[in-house]
Write a protein that binds this DNA or RNA. Structure first.
Length: 348
DNA sequence: ATTCCACCGGAATAGCGGGATA
DNA sequence: TATCCCGCTATTCCGGTGGAAT
C-alpha cells in the first residue's frame, strides 16, 4: 500500500448516477431487445414505439441511454432527444424540449409560441431522431406520446416505473396504441449484480484498494436492488473518506453513507418545492400521521397569506407523486405521513 | 341500513407574468 | 409604449366516495 496518495476518487464522473458506462452489466437481453426494436432506424426506416418499465434503479434510463448512444455510433445522422417528463410534465414543455434538440432554428422562444406551432415545427423536421420520454408516467397529458408516435421520423421510447401508470386513469386511447408496441420489462438487480456494477465503477473511478469486496456487498445489500441508490452510497462514502483525509473507505464511513445517500436523493426533491409546499411538508414531518384538516389548519397558522384548501390538496397529491409523502386511508380516516428517510430499515 | 360529512379530484375560470407585436 | 397572447398557478364550484355515527 503506497499510502502516499491523499485521494480516493480518481474520476468523479464515473460516480455520477447519470454516467453511462461503456458496457452495461447484466442487461444483455434487454439491450438486445431494445436495440432490435430501434434497428429500423439504422436503415432510415420507421421504428415502432418501445415501452421500458421497471422499478427505480433497475437501469431503465441507463439502458435507453446506452442503446441510443450505440445507435448513434452506427448511424451518424440520428439525433437522440432525452426528455425528463418529471421536470417537463406539461405537453408544451415536453414538446419544447424535443424541438430544442431537434430543430435547427433556435428562434423558438418560451411562452409566446403556441403549442400548435411547436407541433408544426416538430412535424416538419426531416432529421431522424430517437425520443426518450423518461418518467413518462409523470406526464399530466400523455398526448405527446401519440403526437410523436404518429410522425414517421421519430422513434419513441417510453420509460416508466409501472406499466399501469401509463394508462391510468382514463387513457384508453393510449392503451390501445401502446399495447401493440414492444415492451421491455426490467426487474430489480440482485445483490451480486449490484456488486458487479459497483465494482465496475470502482475500477474506473476510484484509486486502487480504497474499498474492498465485502464493503461493496454491504452497499449492495443496503440498496435493495436499486442501482442508483447503490452508486449514490458509494459516492457519499468516497467523498466522506476524501474529506476526512483517509486513503481508504472504512466500514464506518460506509455505514454513515447509507442514510446520507438516501436523504441526499430525497433532499433534491424537497428543494424543488415552493415555500408554501415546503410549509405543508414541514407540518406533516413534524406532526407524524396527521389528517388533511389538521394539516391545513396548521399550514394556515404558519403563513401570512395561505392558499386555498383545494390548492393544498393539489400540493399533497403532487408530493405523493414525488414520493415525499404517503397517504393511508381512503376517506375520513385518511392521514398523511412523510416517507421515512432516516430509519435504518432495509426490510419492510 | 341509512345518514352524515371529511375528503378527493375533475372542470371551468380568473389573474399573472413576460415575450411578441403593433 | 400599450396591447395581445399563451402557458401556468390558484381559485371556485361541485359531484362522488367511503368510513363513522345514528
Amino acid at each position: 500500500m503506497p499510502a502516499e496518495s491523499p485521494f480516493v476518487i480518481r474520476d468523479a464522473r464515473v460516480l455520477r448516477t447519470d454516467f453511462v458506462p461503456s458496457e452495461v452489466v447484466h442487461r444483455d437481453g434487454e439491450v438486445n431487445h431494445l436495440s432490435s426494436v430501434l434497428d429500423p432506424v439504422t436503415r432510415g426506416e420507421r421504428a415502432d414505439t418501445a415501452v421500458v418499465t421497471g422499478p427505480s434503479g433497475a437501469g431503465k434510463t441507463c439502458l435507453t441511454r446506452f442503446v441510443a448512444s450505440k445507435l448513434r455510433e452506427a448511424t451518424l445522422d440520428v439525433e437522440t432527444v432525452y426528455v425528463n417528463c418529471w421536470r417537463n410534465y406539461t405537453r408544451y414543455r415536453a414538446l419544447y424540449r424535443v424541438l430544442e434538440h431537434v430543430g435547427r432554428t433556435v428562434d423558438v422562444h418560451r411562452q409566446s409560441t403556441p403549442t400548435d406551432e411547436l407541433l408544426d415545427r416538430i412535424r416538419s423536421v426531416d432529421q431522424q431522431a430517437v425520443v426518450v420520454l423518461d418518467e413518462a408516467d409523470q406526464l399530466e397529458d400523455p398526448g405527446i406520446v401519440y403526437d410523436l408516435h404518429d410522425l414517421p421520423q421519430y422513434a419513441v421510447v417510453v420509460v416508466a416505473n409501472r406499466e399501469q401508470d401509463l394508462y391510468a386513469p382514463d387513457g384508453r386511447r393510449l392503451r390501445s396504441r401502446l399495447q401493440a408496441s414492444e415492451h421491455v420489462r426490467m426487474d430489480r438487480y440482485g445483490t451480486d449484480q449490484l456488486v458487479a456494477i459497483l465494482q465496475a465503477r470502482v475500477d474506473n473511478g476510484l484509486e486502487r484498494d480504497v474499498v474492498d469486496r465485502q464493503q461493496l456487498h454491504a452497499i449492495a445489500d443496503a440498496a435493495a436492488g436499486d442501482a442508483r441508490l447503490a452508486i449514490g452510497i458509494l459516492r457519499s462514502a468516497a467523498r466522506a473518506a476524501e474529506r476526512d483525509d483517509h486513503d481508504e473507505i472504512t466500514d464506518d464511513v460506509v455505514g454513515q453513507a447509507i442514510p446520507t445517500a438516501e436523504t441526499e436523493i430525497r433532499q433534491a426533491d424537497v428543494e424543488t418545492l415552493t415555500p408554501d409546499q415546503l410549509v405543508v411538508f414541514e407540518v406533516i414531518r413534524e406532526r407524524g400521521p396527521v389528517s388533511p384538516g389538521d394539516v391545513y389548519d396548521a399550514y394556515c397558522e404558519r403563513i401570512d397569506d395561505p392558499k386555498t384548501e383545494r390548492t393544498v390538496r393539489s400540493y399533497l397529491s403532487k408530493m405523493q407523486q414525488y414520493d415525499l409523502l404517503v397517504a393511508n386511508g381512503t376517506s375520513r380516516d385518511r392521514v398523511y405521513e412523510v416517507v421515512d428517510d432516516d430509519l435504518p430499515s432495509p426490510g419492510v
